[in-house]
Structures are given as structure tokens and as C-alpha cells.
Design a protein around this nucleic acid. Structure first.
Lengths: 341, 341
DNA sequence: TATTAAAATGCAATCGGTTGCGCAAATTAT
DNA sequence: ATAATTTGCGCAACCGATTGCATTTTAATA
């Protein structure tokens, strides 16, 4: 049953004694083709088991109807959800999405961009890898006139449209919440990387402290990779201080989880002795004991908006490429890890 | 700076007063081209900011160097890891992977296959959606001579190569473990779907009971979608029985988590009163309190093997398409949720 | 130096659709 | 009945790279 010779529109044309052009137009429902012919073509196509070849079409009109999405990793709920949000919009517009993971690896990110460019995707949506400090590969995308939109992990070094949440606000509200719960010595886990989200969260943290007249203590700001293990290390470090913190606001749920583990191992009461808050609203945060206070990043929404913004650019074509910055409001989700009353 | 006119090999050729064929061969490092020419071509290519067009190449030689991977969802650790495993192998061989999610939706799965076929991917690796009971779309792939390999969620209704873990063994060992911990009334969460993995886990469960002379009680087998909420419902149902179970073996970590929540809400001791075990070794299982006993599915390894198997088929071409079934051994990970001593 | 083999490049068809333009037949308007 | 449109379809170029075969150039051999 295996079709040895690929059937093309020419085969259909031959069988019907018409030309390939007509078949092509019929298949594309071109109004200049009669209904009778269309019907006949469709029927013959089915009969011959015709499979359209997008490659050929893409070559001809320079569009592949594919957009590339680059995320650091797809196994994090946040990124997976954004992708889902993007797909919803894209699929509606008959675009396919190809998901690529950079694994936060700079070289892989560069290679991926190159591959997408070679594959002639119609555009790229990306979230920058943690270790990326040079943005030439993104500039290349732009210089080729390929629409580019960044989300969440963005940078100001590029004149590009971007969608993110207000990390500053999310952090500010979280710290404010901790303060209102009576915490006075609040530590923060952050990243030394050049990624704006972490810088913004740090800024929200310091501003909230300042606004509530709580002195900033450098010892309480721990820099690390924000993985679980980093959270564990960070917490241990904090516990060695002369004066223990009474709260930890982590820029990552995973690091917050690491802190929680250490606290529980040492029978330190959460939140009575140390209150905890993370960031991202990973699903597991509601599974922990106590459940973890965190900040929801509106991931699906972010995906939707990113895609919509992307397609706007896309339609406007060359002109009107005024890059645009959309900032979503995050939502603080308070759970037992920080609720003291 | 935006390159308005796309530069092609013809532009390079013109500039060097040679033909496009030579340029093409030079770029592909064809031995029939002199080093001098190669060097010149490479230099001019860089200078002109040439970007290869894979679409054209793909059209010409019928290969896209892209393989499509279909997973129910990419945000589950297991699937994400398998994808990672596949990518490792594929990238080494200079193949790109495009990840597609079916969201366990039959129509979307069919559409995705169609899209991949149209896109002329060189092959497809897939894990079947939960609700898929008709496999014509996969048969179509095979009938077109496109290499196909399934992993984890497979089916016997297709004569196709597949890679999976020994779900039966994983379940058997888990139940055996629970029995050895002194449990005598072990419940099981499973799915009513036609997916072999769940059927195998159920079989492992029943066989273990039988081998240890524990009567099978239908009331203890709860069928559902295995999401968190289903686990909660299932546990509530179990707690209403005249005789409460003293263990629950769930075919999914999420459902096990739901059960754990309900038990904790009612102050039922885990594992003393009810021991718990899940399946998949999702990362969060080590974050719960108590940490959840579960079965690791060797996900990265599975990805590697799946990809290797795929490329074997790929190379062997039309002939030698003897479909092959690889079964990996799962690993039981015992944690506090089931350790009674 | 003439001859032959080897090396380097050119020619032109090809992959499978798409599309601007043109022409003839059918339909409508005058 | 004739002119003006409209409709339906064909022709042929084109998208950009690849490749079998022919041809030219260079090197080796007689």
C-alpha cells in the first residue's frame, strides 16, 4: 500500500486533463476556478492519496507558515504555559509553532536561531537564556527583517517588542506582604545573571524595604542559580548569620523549595520563625507543606498577548515596526508559608 | 541595515564569476571544488551576509533534516525529558527536532500528523494521546514510508517500533514493596483509557496481589483521569468504604498527590495508616511531605533509545523495516510515603 | 611535445507548487 | 445582434538550491 511515487498536482492535472495551475488554484479555493472543477480536483486528490508539499509552496512564496518559539526549557510550567498560549493564537491563524529549547545554553541558542533562519520560519518568539549576554544573533534576525518578539526574559539591548510581567511590582507586593505579616528581616534569593527579571525583582525587594523603613542588609541578599540546591545552600548560609532572617523571598520557586527543605530538616517553623515566598507559581508550590506563597506570572495570558503582538508586527510588514513593550500585572498568591496570623 | 533583497548562491556566483553549481558545491565542501574557490565562496558568502535556504534544499533532495516529535504535553517532566533525550541524539546527527503537543486531544493529534506530513518531516516520533482509539493517522504515516517510532504510550494495533518501560514490572515491584511494608488492603488508581501503560500497571497490581495471596477487591480499583483532582475524589471515595485501605498505589504521581492532600486534611497518618505510591517520578514527588514513593521511567534514556531506534530505521530505508520493541526496566524509588518501619 | 588522465567548473534539468498575464468562451449590457 | 464584461483556465516563469553529465583546464605520463 506504500505510495512509491509521490503524487503531485501534476498527476492530478494529468488525470483530469487540466493544468497544474488549475489544480493548484482549485486546491486553494481560488474564486477564478469553477465549482465543478474544484470538486473534481478534490475528489481526484483524495482518490490519488495526494499529500500537499508545503516545502514547495513555502519556497515559492517565501512563507512557511511556521513560527519558531525558543524557550530555555519546556519542562517548566511557566514556559510550557506560555507556549500553550502562543499556540492557541497561532493555530487559529493557521500557523504552526515549532518549539526549540536552548537549555539556557548560549551556543545552543545561537545555533537554534541559525537553524530557524535556515528553515525560513516566518518569525521568532523567544525568551532569552540565562547566560546570554551577547545579542548579535537576535540582531541578525532583525536585520533580516524577520519579526521577533521576546517574552519574560527580555533585554533592553535590543530594540524589540516584548511582553513581560511587572516583576518589580510582583516582588514589591510580595515583600510588602511579608512585612505586613510582621517580618522585619527579609532575605532575598536572586541571580547574578544579566537577566532583567531578576534585577527587577531585586529592585522591588529593595524598594519595598525602603518604603517600610527596613534597613537593607547586604548579607541577606544571596546570589545563585536559583535551583533547588542553590536554595538549600542559600538557606544554610542565612542560618549561620548572627541574626537569622525571619523571612525569605526567593526569585524562584525552586530555590524557595530548597529553603523550605532545610528549614524543615532543622525543625524551624514556617512561617512562624521564617516565612517563605517564591516566584512563578509552579504547580508544585501548592503541593508543598506548607503550601508556598508565590507570584503568578499570568503565563497563558502572556502567551496569548505575545502571539497577538507578534502577528500585529507580522501584518504591518516592514513598516510600522515600532517596538512595543507590554507589561502584565502579576498576581500575588498568598499561602500558608507566609501567613502568620 | 535590513537586507531587502535576499542573497542567494547566484549572487555569490555572480560576484565571483562562477556558476551557482560551483557555489553550491563549495558550500557543501564537495571534494571536486578547489580549496581556493571554496575559500573565496565562503568569504563572499560571509561578506554578502548569505543565509542558506533550507527550504530550497529540502525541496530538491526530498529531505528536510527535521523530525517531528509528538507528545501529549511538554510540561510534564517525563515527556520533557524524553524529548531532551531525543534531541541529544538527533542534534548530533544534524537533525532538528520539532516538538508538537497533542494535549491528549485526538483531533489535534490527527491535525498535527497531517501538518508534519505536509511539512515533509523526515520522520515522526510520537507518544499517543490518552483519548486516541483510532490509529489511521499513524497508519497513513507508515503507508507513506515515513519512519515512525512510538514511545511510552504505544499500541499493539500498529506494526511499529516502540520503546517503553516495563510498566507491569514497575507496578508489580511497587505493590510488592507495599506488601512488604505490611500493607494488606491496597487500592489502585488507574485509567479507563485504552492506553497500554495503564493496563499494564493494573496487571502488575493484580498479579502482585495474587502472588502474595491478597484478595482482589474491585472496590479498591478507582478509575479516573489520574489528575490531581481525580486523586482527591478517589481517595474520598476510598475513605467512605466500610473498610479503609491501608495503601494506595496510583498510576500517576498527580493523583497520588491528590490522595495525599485528602489524607493530610483528615489527619490520617502517612504511611502508618495509609501508605502511598505514585508513578513517573515527577520532580515534585521529592518535594511533598512526606516525599512520595514512585517509579522512575528512565526518561532521558528512553529518549536516547527511541531516537537511536528511529535513526536505525531511517538508515535501513525501505527494507528491513522489522518493527522492534524495546522495553526498559523501571526503577522503584522508595520514599517516606510508603516506608513504615 | 603530444597524449591521457585527473581535477575543476559549467550547463541545464529538477524538486512541486504558485502566480502574473493572456486568451477564449460564456454572460451581460447596449 | 454587437460590444463590453466576466469567467475559467492555460502558459510559462519562478522560488533557491542540487546534481548528473558535459566541458574545460591543469597536471601527469609517454
Amino acid at each position: 500500500m506504500s505510495t512509491k511515487t509521490k503524487v503531485t498536482i501534476h498527476d492530478i492535472a494529468e488525470k483530469l486533463n487540466i493544468t497544474a495551475s488549475t489544480v493548484s488554484r482549485a486546491l486553494n479555493d481560488n474564486p477564478r476556478i469553477s465549482d465543478a472543477t474544484k470538486k473534481a480536483v478534490l475528489k481526484t486528490a483524495k482518490q490519488l492519496n495526494y499529500q500537499p508539499n508545503n516545502i514547495a509552496a513555502a519556497l515559492r512564496h517565501g512563507k512557511s507558515y511556521i513560527i519558531g518559539v525558543i524557550v530555555p526549557t519546556a519542562d517548566r510550567y511557566f514556559f510550557a504555559s506560555v507556549v500553550r498560549g502562543i499556540e492557541e493564537i497561532a493555530n487559529n491563524l493557521n500557523y504552526k509553532v515549532i518549539i526549540c529549547q536552548s537549555y539556557d545554553n548560549y551556543e545552543k541558542e545561537v545555533q537554534t536561531i541559525e537553524a530557524l533562519l535556515n528553515a525560513r520560519v516566518d518569525g521568532i518568539i523567544a525568551s532569552i537564556g540565562k547566560n546570554t549576554e551577547n545579542f548579535d544573533h537576535f540582531k541578525k534576525v532583525q536585520s533580516k527583517g524577520i519579526p521577533l518578539v521576546l517574552f519574560d526574559r527580555t533585554t533592553d539591548e535590543l530594540e524589540v517588542s516584548q511582553v513581560m510581567i511587572d516583576d518589580y511590582l510582583g516582588a514589591y507586593k510580595t515583600v510588602e506582604h511579608l512585612i505586613q505579616q510582621g517580618c522585619k528581616r527579609i532575605a532575598h534569593f536572586t541571580s547574578p545573571k544579566k537577566v532583567s527579571v531578576f534585577k527587577e525583582r531585586l529592585r522591588g525587594y529593595t524598594d519595598a524595604l525602603r518604603d517600610y523603613d527596613i534597613p537593607y542588609d547586604e548579607q541577606l541578599v544571596i546570589k545563585g542559580d536559583l535551583q533547588l540546591e542553590d536554595g538549600r545552600e542559600g538557606m544554610k548560609k542565612l542560618l549561620k548569620l548572627k541574626q537569622m532572617p525571619d523571612a525569605v523571598f526567593s526569585a524562584s520557586d525552586y530555590a524557595a523549595m530548597g529553603a523550605m527543605q532545610v528549614l524543615k530538616e532543622r525543625d524551624i517553623q514556617i512561617p512562624q520563625q521564617v516565612a517563605l515566598a517564591g516566584f512563578s507559581n509552579e504547580p508544585f508550590t501548592s503541593f508543598t507543606d506548607p503550601p508556598l506563597t508565590t507570584v503568578d506570572q499570568r503565563s497563558i495570558k502572556m502567551g496569548n498577548i505575545t502571539a497577538e503582538l507578534f502577528f500585529e508586527h507580522f501584518k504591518s510588514g516592514e513598516k510600522g515596526i515600532v517596538s512595543q513593550k507590554t507589561v502584565l500585572k502579576p498576581e500575588l498568591i498568598t499561602r500558608k508559608s507566609s501567613l502568620r496570623k
